[in-house]
Structure formats: C-alpha cells, structure tokens
C-alpha cells in the first residue's frame, strides 16, 4: 500500500490559507504597512505589527528555481519519481514552494508561470504551469547575467 501524502499541519494561523486553496484561490498575507508574505504568520515580519489581512493572489508569477528528485525521502513519493519541486515568486511579491505541472524539459528559470490549483489525494495544492508564450515576448533561454534571484 502506498503511504498517503504528508498533510499540512493546518493550524489556527494557516487554516485560512488551506481553506482558500480548497476553493481554488491562492491567498497571502499583507500588513497595513504594505509588506506581503507567505507562509502564514501571526504578525508582520517587516514592521512587527499585527494588522494583518488575507489577500487573493492574481495567480501570475515567475519560476525562480526548481529541482528534480531522483530519490524519495518519504514513501508517498516513491511512485512519483522523478518529480519536481519549484520556488515561485508571485507578482505580488511572496514566494512559495510548489510543483510545476509541466514536463521538466520545458522548465526555465525566470519563466512566467500561472496558478493551477490541484486536488491531490484530497489535499488542495497550489501548483503552477508555464504561461503560454505571447508572440511579443522575449524568450527566457539566455542566462541573465544579473543577480536577480
């Protein structure tokens, strides 16, 4: 029998995040000082205030980096090998750990991505897909020499 996916802890602080994902919405926290972040915290790590609101992300972002697992550190992932884990930066600023739904060969750092909420073994997860390329866009093939991320 396959082990189930390790479920998120779902605390009082993080419940709004996971509840929103179940409805297909990715949310993040923003402080009245303007700072925005993930994952959920009780207070703002920038101004240390506690006037914190949830805000819905537009779902667009950028692929910062990704890795491909060829070994499983948990039995739930043995039959998924090779699988990827990625870092995405949302347009609004917060970053998160995620999976890209595309084939690994197509992934590129700094590629534009968009939200694809998926239910996996009953857990709603914020995954991402490469955005369809527009004809007027420059390719992302050549490495940026700037230290952007």
């Amino acid at each position: 029998m396959t082990m189930p996916l390790p479920a998120p802890e779902n605390t009082e602080i993080s419940r709004p995040y996971w509840d929103a994902l179940k409805l297909g919405r990715l949310v993040f926290q923003r402080c009245e000082c303007g700072h925005a972040w993930l994952p959920a915290r009780r207070g703002c790590p920038s101004c240390l205030g506690d006037k914190v609101q949830w805000e819905q992300a537009c779902g667009k972002g950028r692929l910062v980096s990704w890795v491909v697992y060829h070994t499983a550190y948990h039995d739930a992932f043995k039959h998924r090998l090779p699988y990827n884990v990625a870092i995405v930066e949302l347009t609004e600023g917060p970053r998160l750990i995620t999976n890209m739904v595309d084939s690994h060969e197509r992934l590129a750092c700094d590629a534009a991505v968009e939200l694809r909420v998926e239910s996996d073994e009953g857990i709603a997860l914020a995954r991402f897909a490469l955005s369809p390329r527009r004809d007027d866009e420059q390719g992302t093939g050549s490495p940026a020499r700037r230290n952007r991320a």
Partner: peptide, 21 residues
C-alpha cells in the same frame, strides 16, 4: 505535501540558479 524534503534539495535549488545566472 509538495515533496519538499532533505538538506540536499535546498542546495540543488541554489545550484540551479547559479548555473542559470
């Protein structure tokens, strides 16, 4: 839940980005 495990994977994220930049 996304499969984010291990010390090695964090360094792999960094290495990917260094190779790209």
């Amino acid at each position: 839940a996304y499969g984010w495990f291990s010390t090695a994977a964090g360094y792999a994220m960094i290495q990917r980005r260094h190779m790209y930049e």
